[in-house]
Simulated scan of single mutants.
Amino acid sequence: KDFVFNISETDTVLVKEIKRGIDQKDLEKLASSIVDTLSGEHYIKATVGIGTPIANVKDLAASFKEAQVAMEVGKVFDTEQAIISYDNLGIARLIYQLPTTLCEMFLREVFKQGSIESLDNETLFTIQRFFENNLNVSETSRGLFVHRNTLVYRLEKIKKLTGLDLREFDDAIVFKVALMVKKYLSANPAKY
């Protein structure tokens, strides 16, 4: 009862019958085996979007649309993942659904004029590692192979440029969301 059909030269849809009660991890394992098979046996790089499991055929279109949204959001926010589930998009789904005018207004409010553009790649990399290490200065400095004071200096420099102290949880959240919004706007979504 599975169906496979092409919707374009590069896009194929698999409608897979699954047992009731199958959990999200099992769905992702199945998707992973499909990606691995396509890659290993056919040398095809595949990305899989997973919609919400449905009970009735009438809900198929909504699940398909969710899988499409998962792939679009994945392209914008997490380009490394091969499997993106609609149920695990988190804040990225929220940002993706915001009007671009609201996003631009948010960025203007959060950042001083041009301050986010003034951050170089090294600084953005430092910020990314700082977030990955849960705002821990010592862990981040070890991971970056820099002295702790060097990292503190960089964080102070970011604070002067943006007005946000990334060592403060509330400021870190605002900055993280702002970076995601900037990434979303850089993907040139439809203006509205």
Score class of each variant (00 low, 15 high):
I54Q: 05
P53K: 03
A82S: 08
N6S: 15
L60N: 08
A82R: 11
M71K: 05
N56E: 15
K19I: 14
V13D: 04
N56M: 11
I22R: 08
S8Y: 07
K75R: 08
H42G: 01
D59G: 05
V57P: 05
A61W: 09
G40E: 03
G21W: 02
A55N: 10
E66I: 05
S33D: 09
V48I: 13
I7M: 08
Q24L: 15
V48S: 01
K45M: 14
S63M: 08
A46Y: 11
I44V: 12
G49T: 01
V35N: 01
D36S: 13
L14P: 01
K25W: 14
V57R: 06
S32P: 10
K19V: 11
I44D: 08
A55Q: 09
L60Q: 05
I22M: 10
A61Q: 11
T79G: 12
L30H: 13
Q81E: 13
A31V: 01
Q81N: 05
L14V: 12
E17N: 14
T12C: 10
L38K: 00
K65G: 12
I54G: 01
D11E: 14
E72N: 10
E28N: 04
F5H: 14
L38Q: 00
Q24V: 15
D26Q: 15
P53G: 05
I7C: 00
V15E: 06
I34Y: 01
P53A: 05
L27T: 01
I7Q: 00
D11Q: 08
V35W: 06
N6W: 09
E28M: 07
E41C: 02
D78N: 11
I44Y: 03
F77W: 04
V13G: 00
G49R: 00
I7W: 06
S33Q: 13
G21M: 03
A67R: 01
D26P: 05
Q81R: 14
A55M: 11
V76K: 05
S39E: 03
S32E: 12
E9H: 15
A62K: 15
S63K: 04
A55D: 13
A61K: 15
I54A: 04
S39T: 11
D23T: 11
